[in-house]
Nucleic acid binder design. Structure first.
Length: 870
DNA sequence: GACTATCCTGCCAAGTCGG
DNA sequence: CCGACTTGGCAGGATAGTC
């Protein structure tokens, strides 16, 4: 953007003849032309970024106004926070166009002596070129009336404040992406409208005048939009693009409109016809408004997503979901070659690289320059994403969220200044808002989801599992989270005793601005127990060892932040795209071939030795996913599973539980963990559900026409439920199957392993027994049209036409493209896609397959695979 | 360097809500 | 029922921190 003299208004050039000598400046602006935001976080180093949405957003918007139009009259309609931080915004850069040749335009830094609220009787602060008019109608001057109406929802004539000087520059700088429509004559910038001048004019039709506020509109549509404001459904539109992204119907909490103001703080640019949304806080760009809105919560923390099992809280629900996988032990990523399931994509990828020599990242998708994900047209999925163990919960609504009050800003809670806590904070944090609230925990073991009455098994027991319920009771979650952990992590055998009898007495939540939340709970036992009594208490309580450990962990973490550890950092530039021309590197075999490999029973990771596996499992068992709890515990270690109990009595109980629950298979595995060979892992499927229900497990088979259906795979004697999880891992080869006679990979809901078989079975029992037909969208088809049709079921979009020939090592490379369904899309004639050796880490000459290909495929000299008919 | 846990963002499906 | 809108899952990689 150039000023009238051709000077880039974004440039800060102290030596420029256009600019006078500048005072010491904050860190330089990002001069990238893509950054039109003015007040970047780098300019305000003393402000925690997440505080911006609270009260800096108006300033930031102001800054933008300064940049774009040299008129800074913009403030949020949102009232200032009742308890503003003690920050002092020191400098605000303003750009002042001038008609003077010697000083055609200048950037200056206006000191802001005080926070822009509450200290002036008029709530108005005036600085050079800057006007803060909080709580009143203020807006940015620029563009025509239509645009301004969209932007501000304010009359065009009310620019400025009666308390302030005229703030209308001789020129108007608009960003190139927003072509300025021709301003109406009444909008002349040289004739700054004033409130007094804002009156219906004779030239306008009466129907274009708001009957309520007598505001003028250039079109009937503008008036229609405007009238929404008077109907109480204020359109929360972007100041800059006018896009309304919160439907007025959703705004069910009328006084809380300001809550959503933070979402407005973005601006848009049009690049090559594409609208790009920029976050006003961190200037990240987004292709979709949805992404931006999702991102905005990272700054505002307007919504918080606490983990149901620990005290962490996340800004995005997805983060929490991924995090909770570590609590539940779900292993949703199932390798299609060997059916082995893994907790994370990372583990799966590592597995496929090392075991199968396949790099799925080269064939599955591509990333956009922005870090997004775009699936290739012919992307292959070398794994199955098994359904979530817990059913999808109904989405929350705004009304729900607002009603429960926990989405209210922290200032809604009567804050209590607690300066003493500042000692634990950094210098910047010292200036943050610190509030303390406490709440008495009321044990509520009867929480139920209101929407899904059928969800009484897992959800009912987990209490706060439901996100909505979780918000409602998040202050009391801690007590339940402990019991949850007891349930989910360790105590599958004691489903009945899930809720601790004595919950925390009260809980103190310390909020440090929006940067951190320190959450502590004080239980009654904490108040009265000493160590000895705690131990005795632990003996009384049923599931105490985990409980005690959790308490200990709690104490260790008492001063740690409640939210995740990573601070939000500016996005790095996307890395250059990875070249797909990877030279074949030959078959990568398992680096440990001495038979000592061991697999983690929880996450599926492989370790070169059982010792390492045990260490890994020990860490996993005795810590939350947090690294903070990764410290090793050495007291009262179970000789069987190396689980560490805090007390000897807890260990005794734990060992007793081993004795009660262990099956011969379990004992066998515990004593001699067999390394998993390729043959033994191929049928690592869960059979608990079927076993419990007296049914044979299902296995995926292949019909001649390529359809997928399930059929009874093999029979197995009933197993002990408790030991079933472990039994999957070491002794997974089904009876009656040889290495050459494997069933195809499964899409059986319970086919992934988890450390929580009890809950899985409870949940998965909702799946119909036997064959599970799939509809065209991949959903389970329920014959009688029940709710099961809504069960999330993620089929492999590429039906496995062939598979058994791949299972045994060495793999049949010839059949790989077909087995992976590397078929050209469309048309009746299905042709295999070209085989790309680089995709798989097989050298072209490796040829590990020794036997005859079950399917008559050969590689032709052109590198394409052809089917030999007949 | 390997690994863990969290973060990122485009895309999309599903749910919500009011007309 | 429909459309606008919100919400959250998925994807696969990035990243910071730990070992």
């Amino acid at each position: 953007m150039k000023c009238e003299h051709g000077r880039d208004v974004f440039e800060v050039t102290p030596t420029s003849p256009c600019s006078p000598p500048q005072p010491p400046l904050p860190p330089p602006l990002n001069h990238s032309p893509t950054h039109t935001n003015f007040l970047s976080p780098y300019l305000l180093p003393s402000f925690p970024p997440s505080l911006y949405p609270i009260w800096l957003a108006p300033l930031r918007s102001l800054g933008r106004g300064v940049v774009e139009s040299s008129v800074a009259v913009l403030a949020n309609d949102a009232p200032p926070p009742p308890h503003p931080p003690t920050h002092t915004l020191t400098l605000i850069r303003t750009h002042t166009p001038s008609s003077s040749q010697t000083n055609c335009c200048s950037d200056s830094w206006a000191p802001l002596a005080a926070p822009p609220w509450g200290e002036s009787p008029t709530d108005t602060f005036l600085f050079p070129h800057i006007l803060f008019s909080l709580g009143t109608s203020a807006y940015q001057r620029g563009g025509d009336a239509e645009r301004r109406e969209k932007i501000t929802g304010r009359p065009a004539g009310k620019v400025g404040s009666p308390h302030g000087p005229s703030l209308h520059p001789p020129t108007l700088h608009l960003p190139p992406p927003l072509p300025p429509p021709p301003p109406p004559p009444s909008e002349g910038l040289t004739a700054p409208p004033h409130s007094s001048s804002y009156s219906p004019t004779d030239s306008l039709k009466p129907e274009l005048i708001c009957g309520v506020c007598h505001r003028l509109f250039s079109s009937a549509s503008s008036l229609t939009v405007h009238m929404r404001l008077h109907r109480g459904s204020r359109a929360l539109s972007c100041r800059y693009c006018g896009k309304v992204f919160i439907h007025s119907k959703r705004l069910l909490g009328p006084p809380s409109l300001t809550l959503l103001a933070g979402d407005e703080n973005h601006f848009v640019k049009v690049v090559d016809g594409n609208v790009i949304y920029f976050c006003s806080v961190c200037e990240r760009s987004y292709m979709t408004l949805s992404s931006l809105k999702r991102h905005s919560n990272v700054h505002s923390w307007r919504r918080k997503y606490p983990c149901h099992y620990c005290d962490k809280v996340f800004a995005l629900a997805e983060y929490r979901t991924k995090h909770e996988v570590w609590h539940t032990g779900e292993r949703r990523y199932q390798c299609i070659f060997c059916w082995d399931a893994f907790a994370t994509y990372y583990n799966l990828k590592t597995h496929q690289k090392t075991i199968h020599g396949i790099n799925p990242s080269l064939i599955s998708s591509e990333k956009t320059a922005n870090g997004g994900y775009k699936q290739k047209a012919n992307a292959l999925k070398l794994y199955r994403l098994l359904p979530m163990r817990s059913q999808k919960r109904p989405y929350k609504t705004y009304s729900d969220s607002l009603h429960n009050g926990l989405l209210l800003p922290p200032t809604d809670t009567p804050p209590l200044s607690l300066p003493g806590l500042g000692c634990a904070l950094g210098p910047g944090d010292l200036q943050s808002l610190i509030t303390v609230s406490s709440s008495v925990i009321v044990a509520d073991n009867h929480r139920k989801r209101s929407r899904d009455s059928s969800d009484t098994t897992e959800e009912g027991s987990r209490g706060g599992q439901d996100a909505e319920t979780g918000r409602l009771f998040h202050k009391s979650r801690k007590s339940h989270s402990k019991s949850d952990i007891s349930n989910t992590k360790q105590l599958s055998a004691s489903v009945g005793s899930q809720v601790k009898e004595a919950g925390p007495l009260c809980q103190i939540t310390v909020r440090i601005g929006e940067e951190a939340i320190v959450k502590r709970s004080i239980s009654e036992t904490d108040l009265r127990r000493d160590k000895a009594s705690m131990e005795a208490e632990g003996d009384k309580e049923g599931n105490c060892e985990e409980e005690v450990r959790e308490q200990e962990s709690d104490h260790d973490m008492e001063d740690n932040l409640w939210r995740p550890y990573y601070s939000y950092k500016p996005k790095r530039k996307a890395q250059p795209p990875l070249s797909t021309s990877v030279a074949p590197t030959g078959i990568k075999r398992r680096p440990w071939t001495n038979g000592n490999a061991a697999e983690c029973g929880t996450c599926g990771r492989w370790f070169s030795s059982p010792r390492k596996r045990d260490k890994h499992e020990l860490i996993g068992r005795n810590s939350s996913p947090s690294r903070l709890s990764r410290r090793a515990l050495s007291r009262h270690t179970c000789p069987q599973c190396h689980k560490v109990c805090k007390t000897s009595s807890a260990l005794t109980r734990h060992i007793r539980r081993h004795e009660l629950s262990s099956s011969p298979e379990r004992e066998k595995e515990d004593k001699a963990p067999e390394p998993k060979t390729t043959e033994t892992v191929v049928n690592a499927v869960s059979r608990d559900l079927e076993t419990e229900k007296g049914q044979v497990p299902s296995a995926l088979s292949v019909s001649g026409g390529g359809g997928i259906f399930l059929h009874a795979g093999y029979e197995e004697p009933p197993r002990d439920t408790v030991s079933s999880r472990d039994s999957q891992q070491g002794d997974a080869t089904p009876v009656g199957y040889s290495a050459q006679d494997y069933p195809l990979p499964l899409i059986v809901p319970d086919s992934y392993r988890s450390g929580k078989k009890q809950e899985e079975n409870l949940l998965m029992s909702s799946y119909p027994a036997g064959a599970l037909p799939f509809g065209p969208l991949g959903k389970v088809m329920v014959p009688n049209g029940g709710d099961l049709a809504k069960l999330p079921f993620y089929p492999d979009p590429y039906q496995l036409l062939y598979g058994p020939q791949l299972l045994a090592y060495p793999y049949n490379l010839a059949a790989l493209p077909v087995a992976l369904n590397m078929m050209a899309p469309g048309g009746d004639k299905v042709e295999p896609l070209p085989f790309l050796p680089a995709i798989f880490n097989y050298a072209a000459t490796a040829g590990p397959y020794m036997g005859a290909a079950p399917h008559p495929l050969v590689a032709n000299p052109t590198g394409h695979w052809v089917r030999i008919e007949g």
